[in-house]
Each structure stands twice: as structure tokens, then as C-alpha cells.
Amino acid sequence: MSSEEKHKITRREFIRKGMQLSILIGLGSIAGGLITKTISEKTVWQIDTKKCTQCGRCATSCIKKPSAVKCFHAYDMCGYCDLCGGYFKPGTKDLTTAAENQLCPTSALKRKFIEEPFFEYEIDKELCIGCGKCVKGCGAFGNGSLQLQVSQDLCDNCNECSIARDCPSNAFSRVLNSTSYLMLGLRDSNKWKNKL
């Protein structure tokens, strides 16, 4: 009986050791197999403005309220137009900042007179909800200097972005931390660099 017991124990022990070893090997091979595919940088979510169709889902699909997607303004591309397609509702007659003329639902886009005939447009990030209405207007009638981007300070960087899944035009992708903005008109040499 006792020898049988012992035998049993050793057999059990053998299985245990074998399993331990195979788990170690398994973990090792997963880690080893993926080591070539790892990147030391983390990835963040960003919108490819070239693919974005301004469907308006960024405002509603983000788990954050208001959304971490904001309108960004590439001043380098802006024409400083008086009649700004991103600022005014289509068909606006008098170009004033009155509420009935503004395209932005939260009045987040500010208009400032610079000199004849130029106006500067600025986004109040606190108010912007990322609906993309101005972006659509600017892209359709202007230079496309207003663009939707994920504001990385606000983004929670979910493992699976809920906007990315709802995005109809596949504009969301994981990008490297060091290239966290994909908008046009950002100076190449100065795209945000990670300075720890």
C-alpha cells in the first residue's frame, strides 16, 4: 500500500514537473516569438485625417464625455478667410459672430479680426465636443486646416478604442507614441517628440 502510494505520488509529481516545464516553455516561446514584434514604445490612438469623413461619431462614441477627439487647427494651412466654411452655416448672409450664423454647436470656434480681409480662427478646447461639423465645412469650402485629432492629454488610451470600432471609414489606428499626431500641416521637424 505504502509503496503504491509512493508510486502514485511520484507519478503525480512527474506530471506536475512536466506541466511546470511545459508552461515555462510555452510562456517562453510566446514571449520569444513575439520579441521580434515588440516595440519599446507604447501605441496611442490617432485619426488619419486623410481618411476621416467627419461622420460625427467621434463626439458620441468616445467613452469620455465630452470626447477626447477635438478639432485642431493647422494655422499653417489656414487661408484666414472672411467667409469661413468651418465657421459659418452654409447660406449665411451677414458674416457676424451671431449664434444663428455659427456652425459650431457649442460655439467653440472663435473668430478674430486680424487685418483686412483676414480673420483668425481658434478652437476653445474646453468647449469643443469633436463633432467635426467645422472640419467638414472647412474641408468642403476651404483649405482643410481644421482637422479632427485625438487630443493625447485627454485620451485614456483604452486598449480597444470605442470610437475606432464605430468609425465607418477606418480612420483610427494605433500609432507610435512619438508620432502621436497625424494631422496635415504640422511641421515635420517638429511633430511632437517624446521627451520623457
Binding site: A59, G91, E100, I129, C131, K133
Partner: peptide, 30 residues
């Protein structure tokens, strides 16, 4: 984003651009 009331009011204003009362109404609503 979807304030129907304001949108319809703006529509009305477009047909009737001189209506100052309507204008003020929109601003208040907004």
C-alpha cells in the same frame, strides 16, 4: 449637435432674413 428646435428656427430665418425677433429667439435658445 442635434438641436432640432434651433435648426428649424434657422431655416425659418433663412426664408425671412429680416426677422430680428426670430434672430434673438435663436440666440437665446442656443
Amino acid at each position: 449637435v442635434n438641436t432640432k428646435v434651433i435648426n428649424t428656427l434657422v431655416e425659418r430665418l433663412n426664408h425671412n432674413p429680416g426677422d430680428q425677433v426670430l434672430r434673438n429667439e435663436i440666440r437665446e435658445f442656443d
